[in-house]
């Protein structure tokens, strides 16, 4: 039995699609409205539906053998898990954005983000001292109302930025979803996991 933690929503749908293409017999319709745990006995699989940021926690603690998580989450959380495959799904990127032409405050430049670790590492590497303000959503709001000079967030089409009059200033990293594995499961359940990895690797869309 393999337990797989996945974020709800778009990544879940795309990951299921991949698994089906890899010949896993999954039911056509998942009732993912309420349930948090979905068993697929035919394939000896159990899916745990979690918040994207929590998937890595479940996998690191070993309550899930595997997980599917965005590279953004892996960079932010730095958990001790194996990152075995780039699934090439849910593509987006991490970027610095702000109001066009707006200068950084010279005394205390502020950056709002859901990713405090990534943001502080990035600006430190640029040799810039900034103050990080952690937000949980609607990051685009921060520069509009004067909370921060810049934001660090994921950008997929750029539409949200545009609609709020923001522009992308710097690209930090490319993001796709990754297959992650708990180190103990990797050692003890190696055969099953290896088969899953091989079958998935064979159907991953190459960009």
């Amino acid at each position: 039995m393999l337990t797989i933690a996945m974020p709800k929503g778009r990544i879940f749908d795309e990951a299921l699609e991949l698994l089906r293409r890899a010949d896993y017999a999954l039911p056509p319709e998942f009732d993912e409205s309420r349930k948090l745990v979905i068993d697929v006995p035919e394939e000896q699989m159990r899916f745990i539906l979690a918040k994207p940021m929590d998937v890595v926690t479940y996998v690191e603690h070993g309550v899930a053998d595997l997980g599917i998580a965005g590279k953004d989450v892996l960079m932010e959380e730095e958990r001790d898990v194996y990152e075995l495959l780039d699934l090439h799904i849910s593509r987006c990127h991490l970027a610095v954005a702000g109001l066009p032409g707006a200068k950084m405050n010279e005394i205390a430049p502020r950056v709002a983000t859901k990713y405090p670790n990534i943001a502080s590492t990035y600006f430190r590497e640029q040799g810039e001292q900034v103050e990080i303000i952690r937000l949980n959503g609607s990051i685009e709001l921060a520069p509009l109302i004067g909370l921060a000079d810049r934001i660090v967030d994921i950008v997929s089409t750029g539409r949200t930025l545009k609609e709020n009059g923001l522009v992308e200033l710097e690209r930090i990293a490319e993001v796709t979803s990754r297959l992650i594995v708990n180190p103990a499961s990797y050692r003890l359940n190696g055969g099953n996991i290896e088969r899953l990895v091989d079958r998935l690797a064979a159907v991953i869309p190459q960009s």
């Binding site: 309550v63 001790d80 180190p183 499961s185 050692r187 003890l188």
Partner: peptide
Amino acid sequence: FDVYAEQVGFP
């Protein structure tokens, strides 16, 4: 070497 056991997610 690292050693892992069933039921425990960490080494």
